[in-house]
Design a protein around this nucleic acid. Structure first.
Lengths: 377, 377
DNA sequence: TTGTACGCGTTATCAC
DNA sequence: GTGATAACGCGTACAA
């Protein structure tokens, strides 16, 4: 705004002092008599003086604002991360400027240049699905812009990283599917070059191997746009269910992919968890309420945001160039619900039909009553 | 950053020109010869010159950034709104600084002061659940800060508003419940002093009246913190289901309230839509996939964000003080799904039990087969 | 203890 | 057609 902002000059004029005296009094400098300080403070208060952060920025060559680039804020995982970032930034008097790449490399580069031109003091970023080349980030980083990566990181650049144990998260989820009797587990992945995809697929494969399963690359489906366009997921799922021997479970490697898979299966009338088990990475509040309730791998998003911001502050406020870089690895949580629990209902239905066909109505009834109770009571 | 930023001065030194010449050349002023322009532009390009927005802000007394205050970004409705705001802001070279009130008045005031001290050029706000007093906003508005309200607005202040037809949205939803045979429709509302609550409750009541129902204030439950703490919704829902004559449907007046009601009902094992119908305002992508799929009133959130930003730009960029204020009213969309469609299954279950009890197994089977088909095939 | 002068990057205004 | 200077708001080295 700066509509009719009161400046240090106004106070000086009002009090017949020089601007420097006022400035020093306001900053509680030792060279100013307590008498003068008192009058100045009183006057500043009376006039509703607030320092102009822009003038300060110009002088200090820092803007006290940081940039955040994520693919999408309308995504629980990222909005929770941003909450974490903001909670720390707010306390330290930093501004957070949020940009969305919408999974587009071009947009990411634009956003970055925009933020850079806005004189941000630092950057927190999870790269877009399309980002393979890190030159745009490297260039700014080399010129001294502090950067912290989270989620989708690049080890190419020497800086702090905040991630979760993606390998373990995917491993546990896959092992869980196997324990529940699923035999052919497909994987709905993001771009193959993303760090998270690599690590998660690693965990998925290892779990298969450790349980004596073979790895079938044809049932690992990559979504190069992260499923931001719905038909990408649909196409991949369609291919999976069209296979001769259809997979009986799916592991989704991101929020969008997991719920996208469920959407597809529901539309197709494919029963989850009986015809197809489903588990995936997700941070949505609603997974518990879905049909069926989704088994998920949850990430500590709020904490990730906080950690990233704290690391960035270290970089920004350190006097000498940082040489030791942290790689914070937080833990995922496996939450088991109904989307991975075969109820056998489908087999029941088949049994009932069979019973009716051979005239055993009493058996048919018994089977029916059991399932009806389970479902409706 | 401003790590080693190239300035107009660097170009001037490099070319042996004055800073003013360079400045004018860059701004394509008519007083500069095209030759000089060419050299300057070339040099600026070579040195990767980018203008320093902070210096510009200081000079122009505008920051080219606007503030947005919402209660929560981890909420589909608000993140979609923000998307809309950003899409316009981005094109116009404006920064968007997002703050969250978390439904707290105190936090809202703090956020506002913070944004004001950061010299925002304008503000877009949906007030918190607790906000009854508008003084904090009025003060800044009177001092010349352009403000646009959306969603939860105040008519006390003379400025642009962006809302939806809340009355109609609630009216249609309530009428829909009535048409589907629900007889006692409760309402889960936010703070009674919020504009959206008033309008939506108005629509709800009118629909009841128009259909010959009486209004029962005891089944209108207010959530003064907007359901941000889960137990608030739980307490209210608990009271509703404990009534002698329990309501058979619920209308949720916000995203959080609607999904919160579903969560409660699921936990209690109360069947939706048979024992309790459910419909509500929501913009979540996942409502379609919930158990049961939710009937909702959807708001054109993206469009609302765009409209709000466009109106704000008008205020910011208009030469003379604005006196005509717009009140944009967009339309909601009623999406009917399963949470308001009684299937009668529960009655079926009871009938089957009865049939078994009197020994009519064949009837029991027929009823069972029908419902099993509906559910599992 | 207080005041003067300068610089941060940019542009508008004047002078040449 | 180009250059010098002042100004935006602030902090600080230096002068008094």
């Amino acid at each position: 705004m700066r509509f009719e902002a009161v400046t240090i000059k106004d106070i000086a004029r009002e009090l017949g002092l020089s601007t420097s005296t006022v400035s020093r009094a306001l900053r509680d400098s030792y060279e100013i008599s307590s008498d003068t300080k008192k009058i100045v403070l009183e006057c500043a208060d009376r006039l509703h003086y607030t320092p102009n952060p822009i003038a300060l920025s110009l002088k200090e060559k820092r803007s006290r604002s940081i940039g955040v680039i994520v693919c999408e804020i309308a995504n629980s995982y990222f909005s929770q991360i941003i909450n974490g970032i903001e909670s720390i930034a707010y306390n330290k008097g930093y501004n957070v400027i949020i940009s969305q790449s919408h999974e587009s490399f071009e947009r990411e580069v634009k956003d970055l240049n925009y933020l850079a031109s806005r004189s941000i003091d630092g950057l927190i970023i999870s790269v877009s699905s399309e980002t393979e080349n890190m030159e745009h980030l490297k260039k700014l980083h080399d010129r001294g812009l502090p950067i912290v990566f989270f989620d989708r990181v690049s080890e190419e650049m020497k800086t702090h990283l905040v991630i979760v144990d993606n390998f373990k998260g995917a491993y546990e989820a896959t092992a869980h599917l196997i324990q529940n009797g699923y035999k052919k587990i497909a994987c709905l992945a993001n771009s193959s070059h993303l760090s998270i995809a690599k690590e998660r697929i690693g965990g998925y494969k290892q779990a298969l191997i450790d349980n004596g399963f073979s790895i079938d690359e044809t049932i690992i489906k990559y979504n190069n746009h992260g499923g931001i366009e719905r038909h990408e997921i649909e196409k991949n799922m369609e291919e999976l269910i069209s296979l001769g021997e259809r997979p009986d479970a799916v592991l989704g490697l991101s929020d969008k992919l997991t719920t996208g898979a469920l959407r597809f299966l529901q539309h197709k009338g494919i029963n989850v968890p009986n015809e197809m088990g489903l588990i995936g990475f997700s941070n949505s509040d609603l997974t518990e309420l879905l049909n069926p309730s989704l088994s998920i791998i949850r990430q500590p998003a709020l904490q990730m945001g906080k950690t990233a911001m704290e690391l960035l502050l270290q970089l920004i406020e350190s006097k000498r160039p940082t040489t030791q870089f942290a790689k914070k690895v937080l833990h995922t949580e496996l939450i088991v619900r109904n989307s991975t629990k075969r109820t056998g209902s489908l087999n029941h239905v088949k049994s009932i039909t069979a019973a009716v066909n051979i005239g055993c109505l009493q058996l048919a009834h018994l089977l029916s009553a059991e399932i009806l109770k389970a479902v409706f009571l």
